[in-house]
Structure formats: C-alpha cells, structure tokens
Design a protein around this nucleic acid. Structure first.
Length: 328
DNA sequence: AACTCGTGGTA
DNA sequence: TTACCAAGAGT
C-alpha cells in the first residue's frame, strides 16, 4: 500500500471509527493500557462491559494499585488468560510507585504484561510516539495486501505503511478494518477502501491469506471437584498463584490427570481449554479438606470470582441437586 | 522456538 | 457438534 492508499484508509477510519469506551479525547494512558491488556486475544464485544466495570470501580491506576489482589482477580473472572490479571496488578503497582506511566515504547516494554504489541500500541495511541503496533489484524490485512502467506513476514512488511506522526490512528484504522471488513472469514472486499491496492483481492482469493495456522491435537484430561455443602453455602478454595487459573477461586480438588478417575459424580462438566479438554467430575463430600478456604453463599455465587470452568461446574451441581434424575 | 495459558462467538 | 480464532505475553 502506498501513501495514497494509507490516506484512503485513514479517511475511511475518520468516518467509520467505532465508538469504544477507551477511545476518550484526549486519550487516557490508564484506559489505553487497561483496554489493550484486556483485548489481548479477547474480542471487543467481550471486553467492553468488563472494561466499563473496571474503570467504574477503579477510575485511576492509583485506585487499581490500591485494590486487593482478590478483588481484581474476581473482577477479571471469566475473561480468561489470568496471567494478564496478575501482570495487570503488578504493573499498576509499579506505575503507581513511579508516579505515572512511562511515555516511551522502550520503557513501557519493561512493564509486566506489556509485550511487543501492547507497548507499541500504548506508546502510539496514548502518547503519540511513532511506535509500530503489529497485531493479528495488521498481519492478516498485510498478508492479503501483499499476497504473502506467512503471517509474521506480512506483519514485518507492513511496518513501512505507518505514516509519520499518525502511528496510533493508523494502527486503529488497520484494526478496525481487520475486524469489520478484512475479516478472517467472508471479508467484505466491496466495502474495503484499499481493495484497489490488494493483491489477494486482485487474485480473487482473499481468504487464502494468510496461511491457516497448524492445528495441534487437543488431549483429554480429567479432574475431580469436591462439592461440599453446608446450609446455603459451598466450600471454595484459591488455586496456587501460578499456572492454569492461577490465583483464582475454585472448587477444591486434586490435580487433574490423564486418566478418568473412578468416582460417583453428581455432575460431569466438560470444558474446552486452548490445549486440552477437561472432564470435571463434581463429587459430593461431607467435610472441607485440610487447608485454606471459605464458605461461599450460593445465592451470591455469581460474585464469588469463579472462572467459567468452576462457575459452570457449580451450576451443573446445583441443577443436579434440583433434578437428580437429569444429572450428568 | 515451541509451549502454556481461557473463553465466547460464529459458521 | 466440531473447528476456528480473537487488539499476545511469558517462559
């Protein structure tokens, strides 16, 4: 894409930019950072309501830095990729300690949770630096415009597109284009402002670019979740700070296994993770196991901060209590 | 460099 | 139902 096509894209974006709650005027570094971290591997539709809850509860990075870990992890529950929330907490406290966000891509890159993309995005969007933010949208658009199959190579080739002094606007223009028009499936080339500069469009096979990712097989694993009732409460625990669902509230249970356990569950909840499928057997137990935990009021289970796996497993157990014959 | 790490929407 | 994949980062 030449300077003319880049200009066409910026004009199109000026007229069609989505009105998103983190696009304030002027841009707020806190909102820019928070939204970019939430948007890592997560759709705008999913992020928007969660972002609004976060900024209502914690309007500034100082407020967020002052919150307890469990409060923030609980507010993140259901968003997935919980290392992001742990890094969010560490980053907020580091920023609060130093007084403000660093303003350069290089310094932002040193903060926890800010990788190559996010550091460049915050630098360009919030601080106006000419940093190049290459995300999966930019890679896909570039793969099609250049007719390059390789995602990463296409992304590198797109670096030359970014107009001087407008790197933030241009990154957002490319991302909006990628989500609304140059979609992975069924791209709407008829509405694309730069189709005349697009190799894949000229070839008539836009969906052929970029090359599909190689798929790995997803193994099956098994787990047990103890379902321990006392009156209107259920016993919950906090998972270890690192690893899968690290630091999150959970139903207690032993480590997951490759072998199906021989138990008598009231419910079996199947849950798909990125790299394996889990069958979680929910098994009634009389007493809490050794170790820390708390009784959670079942009428407030929705605000218990449970990740989706355990929220759904608990729902299945409750449904089985009401309709035992429909269990599992 | 390959693997880990969630979830929901869409076709 | 299955498969794909989204504003990636950390190790």
């Amino acid at each position: 894409m030449d300077a003319t096509a880049a200009s066409l894209l910026l004009d199109h974006h000026a007229r069609n930019a989505r009105d998103l709650p983190w696009r304030t005027s002027p841009r707020d570094p806190y909102r820019t950072w928070l939204s970019e971290v939430m948007l890592q591997q997560t759709t705008v539709a999913t992020v928007t309501p969660r972002f609004l809850r976060f900024v209502e509860r914690w309007p500034t990075v100082e407020a967020l830095a002052g919150a307890a870990d469990e409060e923030i992890l609980g507010e993140w529950a259901g968003l997935g990729y919980y290392a992001r929330a742990r890094n969010l907490i560490a980053c907020a406290r580091e920023v609060a300690l130093r007084g403000s966000f660093p303003r350069s891509e290089a310094e932002l890159r040193k903060l926890p949770g800010l990788g190559a993309y996010t550091a460049a995005a915050v630098a360009a969007i919030a601080f106006g630096e000419d940093a190049v933010a290459i995300d999966t949208n930019v890679e896909r658009v570039a793969a099609r415009v250049f007719g390059i199959a390789d995602r990463q190579a296409a992304g590198e080739a797109a670096r030359g597109w970014f107009p001087e002094g407008r790197h933030g606007d241009f990154a957002e223009a490319l991302m909006d284009l990628g989500s609304a028009i140059c979609r992975p499936k069924a791209p709407n080339c008829a509405a694309c402002p730069i189709s005349s500069a697009c190799t894949a469009f000229a070839l008539g096979t836009p969906e052929a670019f970029p090359a599909p990712k190689v798929k790995k097989e997803r193994p099956h694993r098994f787990g047990i979740a103890w379902w321990i009732r006392r009156g209107g409460d259920v016993w919950l625990v906090r998972r270890p700070a690192k690893g899968l669902l690290g630091g999150m509230a959970a139903l207690p249970g032993p480590e997951w296994s490759d072998q199906r356990p021989t138990v008598n569950p009231v419910a079996i909840h199947r849950h798909g993770f990125t790299h394996f499928t889990l069958d979680l057997m929910v098994v009634p137990a009389a007493e809490p196991p050794e170790g820390e935990g708390w009784w959670q009021d079942l009428s407030h289970l929705g605000s218990a901060g449970l990740p989706t796996l355990y929220r759904r497993a608990a729902q299945a157990a409750l449904a089985a209590e009401r309709e035992p014959r429909l269990a599992a």
